[in-house]
Design a protein around this nucleic acid. Structure first.
Length: 255
DNA sequence: ATGACCTTGTATCAAGGA
């Protein structure tokens, strides 16, 4: 089984690239973030024609998440049960016996921004949601755009970003809480020493200079981590004409 | 350099992103 997470930064603009990418890569599940598509405008038919069943939770202009899968999605949730979010950033479903939790974590902007406490609250709500699963036994994947840099290997500029947004202690301790529950960061598990990124700023020739961050993560519970064969960041997609600023990240599991 | 680039919605610019 292959599963990919990809922040596409507008599904309307990126739809041809996503369809072409599906033809080439043929994953079983594709989790999207920043679709920026209201539900009544989601491009259901093009994905169905490729053999994928879409579920989605969108809004105009900002945010929006979707899951495309060859197998049907069950037990779909598009919001935290106990907390009303103002944004569409969360989509959870059981597909092929695996609980898939697709997230688009708030950016936070700056440590002194009013958006920063919202980011921390959002992560705390996610932590509460994830506690219902047993990471030691249940097959669960928590994946998406985390907007958090896990460690110094995950940024091109660890010194410049030290204690700043994405690397601050409250953000990293909330990411750590998922590791404490038993989840593994599959890319880091497979590549303990690799400095590879999944996002590059559109500005300043960042991609060309490889000034990037690894913020798109696939976290797996114990039984799934044990079945993980490989993890790959598809940086080729960042070379497309009109690319997303994020690259797709794919994990492959044995059956 | 409080910038740079890209997307959206509205409007001919501002907000948001990371």
């Amino acid at each position: 089984m292959n599963i990919t997470t990809w922040n596409v930064n507008s599904l309307k603009v990126r739809l041809p690239q996503v369809l072409e990418w599906l033809d080439r890569e043929n994953p079983d599940i594709l989790c999207l973030q920043e679709t920026k598509v209201p539900d009544d405008q989601f491009p259901v038919v093009p994905f169905q024609e490729k053999g994928y069943q879409p579920i989605f939770s969108g809004q105009p202009t900002y945010n929006g998440v979707a899951i495309l899968s060859k197998q049907p999605a069950n037990q779909v949730e598009n919001a935290f049960p106990s907390w009303e979010d103002v944004h569409r950033r969360f989509l959870s479903a059981v597909i092929g016996g695996v609980r898939i939790v697709n997230i688009y974590v708030p950016n936070g902007q700056d440590l002194d921004s009013p958006k920063f406490p919202y980011k921390l609250e959002w992560l705390s709500q996610l932590q509460t949601y994830m506690k219902q699963f047993n990471a030691e036994r249940d097959p669960v994947l928590l994946l998406g755009d985390f907007n958090i840099v896990s460690g110094d290997l995950d940024t091109w500029d660890p010194e410049g970003m030290k204690d700043q947004i994405f690397l601050s202690e409250p953000e990293r301790s909330r990411l750590q809480s998922f590791f404490d529950l038993g989840y593994r960061d599959l890319f880091r598990m497979k590549h303990p020493d690799l400095r590879e990124f999944s996002w590059w700023d559109y500005r300043m020739g960042s991609f060309h200079r490889n000034h990037g961050l690894r913020i798109d993560l696939i976290l797996a519970s114990k039984p799934l981590a044990a079945r993980c064969e490989w993890v790959q960041i598809g940086r080729e997609a960042r070379k497309n004409e009109r690319p997303s600023d994020h690259a797709p990240v794919t994990a492959c599991f044995t059956e």
